[in-house]
């Protein structure tokens, strides 16, 4: 059980693209040898900016709703786990439907794996691998009451896509957390990037 008083905070603007998180993630016991964190370049032609993505652990996970084999479960502590091995049939519904592009389906293995907050560590009181090694604190796992003192930006847990609202356990750091963050595909079309 992951303590309810701890929060996971992502801050893409602090990412320096060192890939320490990717290496550390592969050490996690629940998906040994396979990194589940994504480290993406925003637009390599115009910027060196990179962004790390871990699972946002939605309150009502869309990946679980679209899973035909009922293999994706959210535990009481709000952590959405990788698909249950006996049930997963590798259909990729979760991979294609996740609002944040998190799950990975390994074809051949017929299994979906994703960031599960390093459950083997966090359930025993340790930090997730990525947050432990991130040198710029783009990935931060700290008690919730500490975060407001640590950052000028504040955690935001509510996102909108069109009219769909998604609430998450993992938070993104923004200056005005009162307003849900609107994920608008138009940002991708206008030669976005930093």
């Amino acid at each position: 059980m992951v303590g309810d008083d701890f929060g996971f905070y992502i801050d893409p603007q602090r990412c320096i693209g060192c890939r320490a998180c990717v290496g550390a993630c592969a050490e996690c016991g629940t998906h040994k040898g396979r990194p589940m964190i994504h480290l993406d370049e925003i637009d390599r032609l115009v910027s060196t900016q990179t962004t790390p993505t871990v699972c946002m652990h939605c309150e009502d996970p869309i990946c679980a709703q679209v899973c035909p084999s009922d293999a994706i479960k959210r535990s009481e502590d709000g952590v959405v786990h990788s698909s249950q091995k006996p049930r997963c049939i590798g259909c990729q519904n979760c991979e294609l439907s996740c609002p944040f592009g998190v799950p990975i389906v390994f074809s051949g293995l017929e299994q979906m794996m994703k960031c599960d907050l390093c459950y083997d560590r966090t359930s025993e009181g340790h930090k997730p691998m990525c947050a432990t090694v991130c040198p710029s604190q783009a990935l931060l796992f700290v008690p919730k009451h500490q975060i407001s003192a640590m950052r000028q930006n504040q955690p935001l847990n509510e996102f909108t896509i069109g009219t769909l609202k998604v609430r998450t356990r993992t938070a993104l750091m923004v200056p005005d957390p009162g307003l849900p963050l609107h994920l608008d595909a138009a940002l991708l079309m206008v030669g976005g990037g930093f």
């Binding site: 893409p12 603007q13 962004t51 592009g101 998190v102 993104l172 923004v174 200056p175 991708l188």
Partner: peptide, 22 residues
Amino acid sequence: HHLDLCPKCKRRLMALAQNQRL
């Protein structure tokens, strides 16, 4: 539709939206 975006673009979109907010 959000289904028309590949997983990588969905991830990039999050950072771009944060950038816009900042």
